[in-house]
């Protein structure tokens, strides 16, 4: 019986969003959003500024309460549960143990007053690791994985370049082996060569770890490189949803066609 239960949970989607609505006063940020995400899958959410992408992401990550709808997450600790039906304490624990959240601006996601190494090790301490030597070892490993110079492990993040800060933030969000990572414009604000290397790195890490990820971006190229599936948002609604290649090569909705044709060519 127990086995069957576990089996059932493994089969369930990792994350399911059902009928999610969020408005700010008269502004509809998200209207009736429905989708599922499975383990190891990478979903890209594209759309122009103000289309509700980030609001949707923050609702899914439990950072803001939606007005209606469910965000059902298949957690190691609680099984398949609507995260808003859980207590705040449990929601924070899921967020700490099983999620990562990469901000567009690394300064929002890093603690600027403590060293880079401490930033990367923080999730371990948050999850109860109390052995300095082990943490240090793992932190060094992750510095190498994200191609940061291990000699700079004790430097403050402000002495790092933008690209390095972003890699620091990625290491910090992956070190505790989350099952789902939310990324909000992870390559925004970086120059293209740094962007390309970061994308390469992210693709490698995410594939290696079998992570599920939701990547919000306005950059179609980023979506094409990383995402298995694509959701196109406009004015708070999902206007198109499908496999990345399918959506980009054969866009059906007028807005998606505009988006794809607007990509700059060299």
């Amino acid at each position: 019986m127990e086995r069957a239960d576990v089996q059932h949970q493994d089969d369930a989607a990792l994350l399911a969003v059902r009928g999610l609505n969020k408005r700010f006063g008269n502004v509809v940020a998200c209207h009736d959003i429905n989708f599922e995400l499975r383990r190891g899958e990478i979903l890209g959410i594209v759309g122009e500024s103000g289309s509700g992408k980030t609001t949707l992401l923050r609702c899914m990550a439990g950072q803001i309460d939606p007005d209606a709808g469910q965000v059902v997450f298949n957690s190691r600790r609680h099984g398949v549960k609507d995260i808003f039906a859980l207590s705040e304490q449990d929601r924070r624990r899921i967020s700490r143990e099983e999620w990562g959240y990469v901000h567009q601006n690394p300064r929002d996601g890093l603690r600027m007053r403590v060293s880079g190494g401490a930033n990367v090790a923080e999730p371990l301490m948050m999850n109860g690791q109390r052995h300095y030597g082990q943490m240090r070892e793992l932190t060094l490993e992750w510095f190498e994985k994200v191609e940061l110079d291990i000699a700079r492990i004790d430097n403050k993040p402000r002495t790092f370049s933008g690209g390095m800060q972003q890699r620091l933030q990625i290491a910090r969000n992956l070190i505790h082996s989350p099952s789902l990572v939310f990324m909000d414009e992870p390559t925004g604000g970086l120059d293209v060569s740094v962007q390309a290397r970061l994308l390469d790195l992210m693709r490698l890490l995410v594939r290696d770890m079998g992570l599920a990820a939701i990547i919000v971006t306005h950059d179609i190229a980023v979506a094409r490189l990383l995402a298995d599936r694509l959701m196109v948002m406009k004015s708070g609604e999902v206007v198109e949803h499908g496999l990345t290649d399918q959506v980009l090569d054969d866009p059906q909705h007028g807005y998606t066609q505009l988006l794809v044709s607007s990509v700059l060519q060299i």
């Binding site: 705040e88 304490q89 090790a121 300095y132």
Partner: peptide, 22 residues
């Protein structure tokens, strides 16, 4: 306050980590 309420004290170890690292 939330950290005290939920006994989330991992953050405090960050200062100890910094100290040992330095």
């Amino acid at each position: 306050r939330a950290m005290h309420a939920y006994e989330e004290y991992g953050l405090q170890y960050l200062s100890l980590y910094e100290s040992v690292a330095a």
